[in-house]
Design a protein around this nucleic acid. Structure first.
Lengths: 94, 94
DNA sequence: TTTATATATGAATACTTGTTCATATATAAA
DNA sequence: TTTATATATGAACAAGTATTCATATATAAA
């Protein structure tokens, strides 16, 4: 495995390594949500959510669509769901 | 999803979120290895590897067996391999 | 018991990162 | 254009963490 791939992979998993982002991902498992709704569900500020969504976007964990002034976020692809669920299986078995 | 499960899941992914630990996991995909060999392969000190192995142990990502004074580490279960490989698939597709 | 080898650990430092606060940007309606 | 609403972003601070260095522990051989 190349060094660059090692670093990219660690960076990729860093995105899952925060409880706010885990809450966002968990919320998006069911349906797309806008920033305001996510802030409400996660229980933090719009700013904090927005910062975290930027990280999720940059790492291709979420995608988004605009409807007028509202931006709806959803999970990018099936890998994200797979990894999330595998992780959950693992911790449930301990 | 319960709050405790959220935090546990974030903690679990934190373990993958470091390039030294990713290198260790990548090395252990093929076969069990002792601390000294891991240090050589990863390219860091015995102490650094030992510190990281402790984290990997505590999170049940690796298991170990002792042979005289040497301790051989290996991946704990198939979830670890699955998550690692899914992550790698994801970054390869970007 | 003494010595050698393999591994583990505690403390300190440097670095990274999530949140907050204030503010900026973007779109739509009036 | 002005106003309102939704979202994004920059800077600063606090909290967490990986490595290094020194040292401790554990097992086996002499």
């Amino acid at each position: 495995m190349k060094d660059e791939q090692i670093y990219d992979l660690a960076e990729f998993f860093k995105v899952f390594a925060d409880s706010t982002r885990i809450k966002i991902i968990a919320a998006l498992l069911e349906k797309e949500l806008c920033v305001f709704e996510l802030a409400k569900i996660v229980g933090t500020t719009q700013s904090a959510i927005s910062h975290q969504l930027r990280i999720l976007k940059q790492s291709h964990l979420v995608k988004f669509r605009r409807d007028k002034t509202t931006i709806y976020y959803s999970l990018d692809d099936e890998h994200i769901k797979d990894i999330f669920l595998k992780g959950r299986e693992h911790i449930e078995e301990i």
